[in-house]
Design a binder for these strands. Structure first.
Lengths: 254, 254
DNA sequence: ACAGTCATGTATACGTTGTATTCGCTGAGA
DNA sequence: TCTCAGCGAATACAACGTATACATGACTGT
């Protein structure tokens, strides 16, 4: 694990014996053992990156950190990925392999289940909310497979291609928008060291009091007082999802 | 504009005369003219930052670049903002001032118009899609005002607070999810130097051909062949939005 | 059995970033 | 006229992504 690098920054031409050998025997013996053979693979790089990102967020992924966690020199991973963006594409693909199939009864249940599982996946890997454009749009095999499954669920309903895609995109946009907001809130809380909804509320209280004190947001204030599902993201997610599925069903003639 | 800094990196204690004056007259004359008085304000910082981000993306905003654009030393802005996150919060608030009121006929038209204008705002300021959690959730006055207006539009319908908020959140999630995807695609295209849908298609073609060649995505492939609204984001956005508004209207008894 | 090639990981270095710290200048109030 | 608070400049540092050049040992064909 912890690489013990004792090798001094030896200047290349400082021969000790007769100037023949550029590095002394002892210097060579102190060098870290050379790689057995293929210590790295893209898959292993991505796996370790995912572990780091899950535990400490996307910012914790640096090529140096990744190399350290892999037990390898900072530049080693560049043999397998062309840069940080490549790592992220691999991460995205790998993680989407976790989304299981589930052929439910009808299109509606299938889409609903997929939405819920996508939300769960994103909450499990919150860094999915912060991807670079490169990684966010990567056409990776596992991602394509998910899209294919969605379309398949709608395939026997006699819809034209545009409508099918519109339905999938609408649900997808909602799922990502809603879950991103949820994740962002989590990250904000973590960033400030708040770990419960109560802490969030007390932390936000000063600003809220000031804002409400202006009297400019009366309806918002009423919600703050009357809302009972404010802290129930699952209810909020499903409620909105059901609105949307209702709307789609109505357009399609139930 | 272009600051002409000629000042050498003068070591502090290199008296030329009698060691009395730490900096010689000529050194002082060469120094950039001191600030007239309060060259900076948070508002000006945010304005310039927005200009940069609109033109070159969020990554172009560095504290050094910002300072250069303001005609000021790299650290100067730190008198007014506590760091980069502060700058972004200011940017978010400032930009949300652009969203005009528009009391349309009923709740549905009001919400629809707000959704369309929000999308337009985001497309105009694409960096809104990439905010840090800090900035993304900032409770800024202008942002609160937008939320308040949404809620007001629903206020006279006899809904309870939770339902009202669920409706607003659902639409908001969709708008952000859909528009983020749109922006992300734009940014991907810019990043690769593609400027038209045709270039996008040719650029993506190799990967698409490979993916389709696997035969694992037949329904997706059918869409690629049959879809006629693939390149019409406005249609896609409005179609999804109308699904959602339909669903909400149905729940509320039209 | 053996020299040569090649894949693999290492070492070093450069430019850029955010920001802590410290300083000197300036103009307004006494 | 003097003083001082406030403003911006200067310097510095650690961390980042990655270009480049190199050393090493495992395979190859003979």
């Amino acid at each position: 694990m912890a690489s013990q690098k004792k090798s001094s920054a030896a200047p290349p031409s400082q021969g000790e014996d007769e100037g023949q050998a550029q590095t002394s025997l002892w210097e060579r013996l102190e060098r870290p053992a050379p790689a057995p053979r293929a210590a790295l693979t893209p898959h292993r790089i991505a796996s370790v990156a995912i572990e780091i990102a899950d535990a400490e967020g996307l910012d914790a992924i640096t090529m140096r950190r990744l190399a350290a966690e892999l037990g390898v020199a900072p530049m080693a991973a560049y043999r397998y990925v062309s840069g940080k963006d490549d790592v992220m594409e691999l991460m995205v693909d790998l993680v989407h392999g976790e989304l299981e199939h589930s052929q439910a009864d009808g299109w509606r249940e299938t889409m609903r289940a997929l939405a819920l599982r996508t939300r769960a996946l994103m909450l499990k890997h919150p860094w999915l909310a912060q991807l670079s454009p490169q990684a966010a749009f990567a056409l990776t095999p596992n991602r394509m497979a998910v899209a294919e499954r969605s379309l398949t669920a709608l395939d026997s309903l006699g819809l034209n291609a545009d409508t099918m895609m519109a339905i999938v995109r609408t649900i997808d946009s909602y799922v990502h928008g809603a879950t991103n907001a949820e994740i962002t809130l989590h990250q904000l809380m973590e960033g400030r060291g708040w770990s419960s909804d109560d802490e969030l509320k007390t932390g936000l209280a000063p600003q809220m009091i000031w804002l409400m004190g202006t009297g400019r947001y009366p309806t918002f204030q009423r919600y703050l007082l009357e809302g009972t599902h404010k802290d129930d993201p699952q209810w909020q997610f499903e409620t909105g999802l059901d609105y949307i599925l209702d709307g789609i069903a109505a357009r399609m003639g139930i």
